[in-house]
Every structure is written in C-alpha cells, then in structure tokens.
Amino acid sequence: MAAKGILIQGLKKRYGSGDTAVDALKAVDMHVAPGEVVGLIGPSGSGKSTLLKCLGAVIEPTAGKIILDNDIIYDDGWKVKDLRALRRDRIGFVFQAPYLIPFLDVTDNVALLPMLAGMSNLEARKRAIELFEALDVKHRAKAMPSQLSGGEQQRVAIARGLVNQPPVILADEPTAPLDSERALTVIRILNDMAKRFETAIIVVTHDEKIIPTFKRIYHIRDGATYEEKGQGRGFE
C-alpha cells in the first residue's frame, strides 16, 4: 500500500500488561494528505497525547500500521532502524508552548535541525531565514527567544517544525496560550505552510476558536477515531 502524507491504520497502544493494562489506543485510522491540515479533537484521557507520541516515534505502538510518504515506518513493529533520524528528518513538531532553546538566537533555534542532520551552518541559517520571511519574523532573526512576543515565538517554533521539510507535522495544542486573533493567525500560517511545502499537518486541539477552521476533523474517544467533515473552508 502506498500513500502520500501520513496514513494510519488500526493503530493500537496498550500501556502496561495484565490486570493494570490500559488500552490507550484501540482503533486509530487516519489519513492526512500533503498540504492538508486536519484537527484531532477529543476529551481529556481519550488518547490524543498517546497518538502523538506514537506518531512522533518516542513510544512504540502495540499494533497497526503507519505509512509516511509511501514508506512503511511501522507495521506491528518499527520498520526504520534509526528513530532519532526519523524524528529529525521526517517529522516536524510544534508544541503547546514554543519550547525554544533559550541560549540560541532565533536563527540558530531553527537552523539547529538542519545542522543536526549534517548541513553546513551557513546553508542551515540561510534556510531558516527563508522561512522567517514566509512567517514574517525575519526582522527578529538575530533576537534571543526571550525578547520575542508569544506569537512571534510560536511562529519561530513553526519554522523549526518546517525547516527540515518533513512530510508530516504534529502540532500539540499549538494555539493554547494565544488569544483568538493570534490563534487564528497561527492556523492560517499552518495552512499556508502546508500548501507551500506539501506537508500533512495534524493539529491536536480543543480550542473552540480554531475548530471551525478545519475542513476535516478526526474525533477520538476512548482510543478510537472517527472522521467528521468540518465546517471550515480553509484560508483560500
């Protein structure tokens, strides 16, 4: 089976074993195409974080299949050897808080990822600056993270998620600390970037302000997903 973007089939995750076992994910089926931004919505304890950790390759699922850009990375077991390189090169992360590295300036916070992948400092910084242009934070390129506003920090964090041009970005409540105007700006940026870089973006949220913007939404409850057509028409 081949699929662009990210395809998840019958994903299961059980924590622990025996009497104390918790089935956090029971039946997760999702598909996000390149350039698409989908919402993942569910009450507390429904398994959202567990799913992100599985997709982010920091915990191992129990069963199922994950296909990333036509490449089977999980099929009842990891199919790639170097999970660290997988996270670095093929998965972008955007967190609830920006979590920028406080001792690196804005440019190097973003350029660090391509550098970790072996790109020269000069080229990595050039690539970061290009993204800053698209994200409208170029004028802050030399600043330290602590000198940025919350919205600016989150845009830098998005740039970090994008910089290695991963096929998928996992965004964990990226608008939680922002007011509604800034939250909508962040979602618009994610939509723009998804199109520009052909990236599949999954946004975990329960932020009422942004739910109406999604064209497609996955609901998750008790570890099982079902799809719903959203009301959003995106940002064309």
């Binding site: 982010g56 920091v58 660290r84 390189a85 996270r87 670095r88 090169d89 992360f93 967190f95 979590y99 590295i101 406080p102 660090l112 990822l113 970790l116 992948a117 970090r160």
Partner: peptide, 16 residues
Amino acid sequence: IREIAVLKLIGTKNRT
C-alpha cells in the same frame, strides 16, 4: 530538562 527533552525529540544525539 525541558530543553533537553526538546533537543532529544528533534533528533539530537545523546553524545551531543
């Protein structure tokens, strides 16, 4: 600790 977790998540080697 938080920065280290982020560094590890985005693929920094333990050696680094």
